[in-house]
């Protein structure tokens, strides 16, 4: 509940969502999040990546073509190759990526307060405990 209201508070200026990037090493989570987004009609285009590095490469590839970066990113924390924290570190530091129009939500199974604190050191739009539901998504988007 705490996460939901925190998320709601940050979702004031809402940009129309065209592109979404879902980053999760579990294929089933990518599927669920994608389906919830589609059902809610959020995003014309939904990309998925299975770890932080794939996500970073995807974003850089989009930026290289001068296309708009996704307005929404959902990223898990615990992932192989490059985890969510490393992704946040790299992505927010990268000169190639202008994330000013992108809202990043951490979407995790972690219940550790330390993880939330650490994630909040980055410019994220919210920290959501899995599962993402239609209601939570709506409260973010509305």
């Amino acid at each position: 509940m705490e996460e939901q209201s925190a998320v709601g508070a940050k979702a004031e200026k809402v940009q129309p969502v065209n592109t979404v990037l879902v980053v999760d090493d579990e294929e089933n989570w990518c599927f669920v999040i994608k389906r919830i987004l589609q059902k809610a009609g959020v995003g014309n285009q939904i990309f998925t990546a299975n770890n932080g590095l794939q996500a970073l490469e995807k974003l850089k590839a989009i930026a290289a073509t001068n296309e708009k970066l996704p307005e929404l990113i959902f990223i898990d924390l615990k992932m192989p190759v490059m985890d969510g924290f490393e992704f946040l570190e790299e992505a927010t530091q990268s000169p190639e990526l202008d994330l000013s129009q992108t809202r990043i939500f951490v979407l995790t199974s972690s219940m550790l307060p330390q993880d939330k604190e650490r994630a909040n050191e980055y410019p994220i739009a919210g920290f959501i405990s899995k599962p993402l539901t239609h209601q939570i998504l709506t409260s973010i988007i509305s």
Binding site: E26, K130, P131
Partner: peptide, 9 residues
């Protein structure tokens, strides 16, 4: 927790 909440979703 991760797969369990996934089943829930």
């Amino acid at each position: 927790r991760s797969p369990v909440t996934n089943i829930e979703a």
